[in-house]
Design a protein around this nucleic acid. Structure first.
Length: 881
DNA sequence: GATGTCACG
DNA sequence: ACGTACGTGACATCT
């Protein structure tokens, strides 16, 4: 029979260590009620680490009972002189007990005794034949307990570093001492942290020397007469009583009157019923997520549902939750493996293709009046559109709502979102389907159906909850009038896709391959050897070791070879220029030419996916392929745009973008007189800034260089400026950059006030908002760590600007989709690139589209300054410039 | 899976 | 004194 293992944890000292392990993140660890949670969090991590490492069969956490113990009775100054325990720590102790309880572990305390004594007694008492013992503490005093069957783990640093004390390790560390002699050592040398006095002038070193000769405190005093006359001997004689008292104080009582039945300490696993709500209360979302994944197959209550044989109309009564399952991310291509729908009364599940043909089902999908609640409307829409018909009447999207409520908390599956809102009758997809190569449908079809049914139940449960939360945060309109309608428009844009001229790309591929080959050969010749040009590591060795170029910047792992570094080196070695060219072409070749070719579908188009629930600011992102970062700045790359063409030959690509939308938004929110004036009068904004910052009277006296610098300042303002950032960007000194900033704020006091106000508000409320109540929480805004805090401050400044600009474009898109339909234009909206919309349009419709787009975009919202757009068109996206 | 680099707004 | 511009995604390399 394998031996049992008993883990004994010194609750107070581990908690105390935990508190200080994450002390510099104190302000980041706060739950919704303002409770600090750093010690709870770190305690949890430390405890789980040891549990995983030791795999004990039995566990107990011991706590100190109170202020007075038998030791204070002996020596009233015991543990005296300690600085007061911080309030931020004390408030967490009750929750640590609650956590231990939820982790399925018992704790124990005993009047008059410290945790040490409980641990010592239990370690001493258990049957050594049946049990090994592991002690976890933050206090080295406990090392005296180490024996052949008791190992003492002491937390050393951070949350994960532990030092294990066995008798052998003690001997090694203390020059041959046994664990029990540690007590004698404390008797002689004392212990400042517990305020144990010890003998005058004797420290650890001397104590060890004495103990090696005489064995123990008692041994020393038995032979004290034999010692030669010395100051030390005198001290020993004078402090005899103190020595014995100190030893007694340092001795852990291994025979305390405790009433713990070791058999009752058997570890039976976590108590999920307590742990899930505890994590929720503490906002420990990462632990919550992990729980979904690693939790033993939770015994879920059975869920009632019907597997549909034949679809009938009565299956679609009233408001209904709908879920469409696919095994992969790309809903443009993935097979639908199952569909479930229902409400409180009844849930239906089906994996039969006939479903999509059945009129009862398709009529319901097409009926706008019969409301559908879903998780991820766009995904649902695109998939169903492909199999049968586009669903109408989608009235709620749990994923989208969760994202709006807290942008930090999504990208989870339903189970993650559900757990966050206190609903746990569902497991994660990973738990049911597995992950990586092993991902697939469960062996038992019944498990799969039950999982789908639970998703429908979760959506049903969460819809009213999240609706209420949105209202509480004043986000109902944002959700109902902006994000949800937009998701349908995005779905249509994705489905439409944009045509890509593969032959053009193939042609470019050949040309670039040729050029790359030539540059490569040249570089190898210059370097005198062949190496992997794509490896920054190998390139670093060539440039900075072999060729001896000066190291300008380092990364975590070695030399930096980024553009700004190479730019500074190109004077010194011709190879550098070639490397820059190589990098530029290689990027275009791999990411754009080859990358795009890989994702062209059978219809000759690419169908991106806009991720609507990801960014912290409200922007969209685009994946698979990313069509929001197609090259434009450099001519070489810009050519890629020649491959983006309209779907019909007599059509053109039309593009319209907002001019300076972020600075206009800033002018609006800050209400700064001069900034507003510049836009109202239609001035060139960067020149206007240059005039004010450099004190120029006439516009024609602004040099291109001044304008360039002013442009950088304007960018900096939007990003939450810092002297360092601006100096890097402009290649000027920090002092000069600071001078620019100071002058800017002097000339634009409204902007300065806005920045101060928004940061103060963020510190106050913990979040910032856009014009349309999109919210971003900034938990770091009050951090004591300079870097973390200032980063949050810059974010507080930038987010309302970037986010409101995103709001405006979203509104324009919704208005435009509506108008295009009303005006019965054939023109189609294809892409959104943050401040730009791209369409394809029959040439004959161009004038009408141009007028409409301009009108709608410029009138999308009314700001204190005008909104302006620039538009262009041509045979390809490249030509729409 | 993390890291460095580089494409976009 | 601290060491940064804001927001993204894809690719190649290396652990």
């Amino acid at each position: 029979m394998p031996k049992n293992k008993l883990l004994l944890v010194d609750g107070n000292s581990v908690a105390f260590r935990a508190f200080f392990a994450l002390h510099n993140s104190l302000e980041r660890f706060k739950n919704a009620n303002g409770l600090h949670t750093n010690a709870i969090y770190a305690f949890h991590t430390m405890f789980e680490n040891v549990m995983a490492k030791e795999q004990p069969t039995h566990v107990l956490v011991a706590f100190d009972a109170g202020k007075t113990t038998f030791r204070t009775a002996m020596y009233e100054d015991y543990k005296g002189g300690r600085s007061k325990t911080p309030g931020e720590f004390k408030e967490q102790m009750p929750y640590i007990r609650e956590l231990i309880n939820a982790l399925g572990v018992q704790y124990y305390e005993l009047d008059n005794y410290e945790a040490d004594d409980i641990i010592g007694t239990l370690a001493n008492k258990v049957d050594k034949e049946l049990f090994d013992v592991v002690v976890l503490s933050g206090d080295r005093d406990l090392t005296q307990l180490a024996t052949e069957h008791v190992k003492v783990d002491i937390t050393v640093k951070g949350v994960s570093e532990i030092e294990s004390y066995t008798p052998a390790h003690v001997a090694e560390k203390y020059d041959g001492l046994t664990p029990l002699q540690i007590i004698d050592m404390k008797g002689l040398a004392g212990d400042a942290s517990d305020n144990i006095p010890g003998v005058t002038k004797i420290g650890e070193k001397t104590a060890i020397k004495l103990l090696k000769e005489y064995g123990s405190v008692e041994g020393i005093y038995e032979h004290i007469d034999e010692m030669k006359k010395s100051k030390m001997k005198e001290n020993l004689i004078n402090d005899r009583e103190i020595a014995f008292l100190s030893k007694q104080l340092a001795t852990i009582d291994v025979d305390a009157p405790i009433e713990v039945d070791v058999d009752k300490l058997k570890y039976e696993g976590k108590d999920l019923e307590k742990l899930v709500p505890f994590y929720q209360e503490m906002n420990f979302n990462s632990f919550l997520d992990k729980l979904q994944i690693t939790a033993e197959p939770v015994e879920m209550e059975d869920i009632l549902f019907s597997v549909v044989e034949e679809v009938t109309e009565d299956m679609f009564q009233g408001d209904t939750a709908l879920y469409v399952e696919m095994m992969g991310d790309n809903y443009h291509l993935e097979d639908i493996v199952g569909v479930a729908w229902g409400n409180q009364e009844k849930i239906y599940v089906s994996n039969r293709e006939e479903l999509f043909e059945s009129p009862a089902f398709t009529d319901w999908l097409k009926d706008e009046k019969r409301k559908k609640f879903v998780y991820d409307a766009k995904r649902t829409y695109v998939a169903l559109n492909r199999y049968t018909t586009a669903p109408k009447g989608i009235a709620f999207d749990v994923l989208l709502a969760a994202y709006l409520l807290d942008t930090n908390d999504t990208n989870n599956d339903i189970a993650g979102v559900a757990a966050h809102y206190g609903y746990d009758a569902i497991q994660s997809d990973e738990a049911i389907y597995g992950k990586g190569a092993k991902k697939g449908l469960p062996a038992d079809e019944e498990d799969f159906f039950a999982h789908l049914a639970r998703k429908v139940a979760a959506i049903t449960n969460l819809t009213p909850k999240l609706t209420e939360e949105l209202a509480a945060k004043n986000q109902t309109a944002l959700f109902e009038e902006m994000e949800l309608p937009l998701s349908m428009i995005l779905a249509e844009m994705e489905i439409t896709g944009i045509k890509v001229d593969a032959s053009r790309l193939h042609q470019m591929k050949g040309e670039f391959a040729q050029r790359l080959h030539e540059i490569e050969e040249k570089i190898y010749a210059e370097a005198g050897e062949n190496f992997n040009l794509n490896s920054p590591k190998q390139l670093g060795v060539i440039l900075f070791e072999k060729m001896g170029l000066p190291v300008i910047k380092k990364t975590k792992t070695g030399y930096s070879t980024a553009v700004d570094v190479l730019e500074q080196l190109k004077e010194q070695a011709p190879i550098v220029e070639d490397i820059l060219t190589y990098r530029q072409i290689a990027k275009i070749q791999s990411t754009y030419v080859e990358g795009l070719l890989k994702v062209i579908q059978g219809d000759g188009k690419v169908h991106t996916r806009y991720v609507q629930t990801l960014t912290q600011t409200g922007r969209l992102s685009s994946v698979d392929p990313n069509l929001q970062n197609i090259p434009i700045r450099l001519e070489e790359g810009r050519k890629i745009r020649e491959a983006f063409v309209p779907r019909e030959t007599d059509w053109v690509i039309y593009s319209s973008d907002y001019s300076q939308i972020e600075l206009r938004v800033l002018a609006h929110i800050s209400d700064d007189t001069h900034l507003k004036e510049a836009f109202i009068e239609g001035q060139d904004i960067h020149s206007s800034t240059a005039m004010r910052v450099f004190g120029i009277e006439k516009a024609e006296d602004v040099t291109p260089n001044m304008r360039r610098q002013a442009k950088a300042v304007n960018f900096g303002i939007v990003y939450g400026i810092s002297d360092y950032g601006l100096s890097q960007n402009l290649g000027i000194t920090r002092k000069a950059a600071q001078q620019y900033i100071d002058t800017y704020f002097e000339k634009y006091p409204g902007v300065k006030t806005y920045m101060e106000d928004v940061v103060r508000e963020a510190k106050d409320k913990g979040y910032v908002e856009t014009l349309y109540h999109r919210r971003r929480y900034l938990p770091d805004i009050n951090s004591r760590n300079f870097n973390i805090r200032t980063f949050a401050e810059r974010t507080a400044i930038n987010t309302p600007i970037q986010g409101s600009a995103a709001d405006i474009l979203k509104i324009a898109m919704i208005d435009l989709a509506k108008r295009l339909k009303e005006e019965k234009l054939a023109a189609t909206m294809l892409l959104q690139v943050h401040d730009e919309l791209v369409f394809e349009v029959p040439e004959s419709e161009l004038p009408r589209l141009d007028a409409l787009v301009k009108e709608v975009m410029e009138q999308a919202v009314a700001l204190h300054v005008p909104l302006l757009t620039d538009s262009n068109w041509g045979k390809t996206w490249y030509d729409a410039k």
